[in-house]
């Protein structure tokens, strides 16, 4: 497996990188850690005459707490997120999701921005980031903007990024007080396989009742999916009847397709099961 010749452009600043992408249009792609792009180029599934190296731009890999939440630079590696003391303290569910990806070598190399921009439907980080209400920062020829993650994934391997736009960071607001989150990942093949599906849930409770329930699933639709229409759970206790209605919402919104990791029938069964598990875990946890 060898890669067809290309030129690696090494910008020193974001505006320079954006300009390189703009100048070369469809002939150029940003290069994060390269764990996806290098494979696709080796397999000759894609070829770009120019790659723009984002690793040579200083300051894109920071992780830090800000007044309105946590900010993770797009070039932070999966491993940096997994091991970061502040992420583990404030948002352990995010550290866990990044810590589950592939293997330790991939996590050393792959970047947070590359993960999200790749927009595979089975990725681990999007479900927890979706329930936490994360948004991403993008910089392009027309300046910078923020896109809420729920509007970011547009289709299989498709995002809201414009050509020549670069994802620069992910911001995760502080989770609501008295909330808890889990991410359950299920793989059907070997222990470190890609997930068959993943379920993230965030539950906020008040006086023993549900104040807000958020759910997001990966692997069961063309994009990672934040479940809509769960407002009815407000002020309810999450008994079997309410959970049944939640499962109905989930079933209406997912559209799994059969692949090597399970048939549509199986994924629907597992989506139900893991949503139930996630809710039970959060509900039980807080008594």
């Amino acid at each position: 497996m060898t890669i067809r010749s290309f030129e690696l452009l090494q910008p020193r600043s974001l505006p320079e990188a954006v300009e390189m992408l703009r100048e070369h249009g469809d002939d150029a792609r940003p290069l994060g850690g390269g764990t996806t792009l290098v494979i696709l180029m080796k397999q000759r599934a894609v070829h770009y005459p120019f790659l723009v190296d984002l690793q040579t731009i200083p300051g894109l890999n920071g992780i830090g707490q800000e007044s309105d939440g946590l900010r993770i630079g797009a070039l932070a590696s999966h491993r940096m997120v997994e091991l970061s003391p502040v992420v583990r303290r404030l948002l352990p569910v995010v550290a866990e999701a990044f810590g589950h990806i592939g293997n330790v070598r991939v996590r050393e190399t792959a970047s947070v921005g590359g993960n999200l921009a790749h927009a595979d439907y089975r990725l681990d980080p999007p479900p927890p980031l979706l329930v936490l209400g994360a948004d991403i920062g993008a910089v392009g020829p027309n300046g910078s903007r923020r896109i809420s993650l729920k509007n970011f994934f547009r289709g299989m391997y498709e995002t809201a990024l414009e050509p020549s736009e670069i994802l620069v960071d992910v911001k995760i607001p502080a989770p609501p007080a008295d909330s808890k989150a889990v991410y359950l990942r299920y793989s059907t093949l070997s222990a470190n396989d890609w997930p068959c599906l993943g379920v993230a849930a965030l539950l906020t409770k008040e006086n023993g009742r549900c104040k807000e329930l958020r759910l997001a699933l990966g692997g069961v639709a063309p994009t990672p999916l934040l479940i809509d229409g769960l407002e009815f759970t407000r002020d309810q206790s999450l008994d079997d009847g309410v959970v049944d209605k939640v499962l109905q919402k989930v079933e209406e919104q997912i559209s799994p397709s059969s692949d090597l990791r399970g048939s549509e029938w199986y994924k629907r069964r597992m989506a139900r099961l893991f949503v139930q598990k996630a809710i039970a875990q959060l509900n039980g946890d807080q008594g």
Binding site: S258, D259, L260, S263, E264, W265
Partner: peptide
């Protein structure tokens, strides 16, 4: 009775 699936 379950739907059969080609990928299995």
């Amino acid at each position: 009775t379950l739907p059969r699936d080609s990928s299995l």
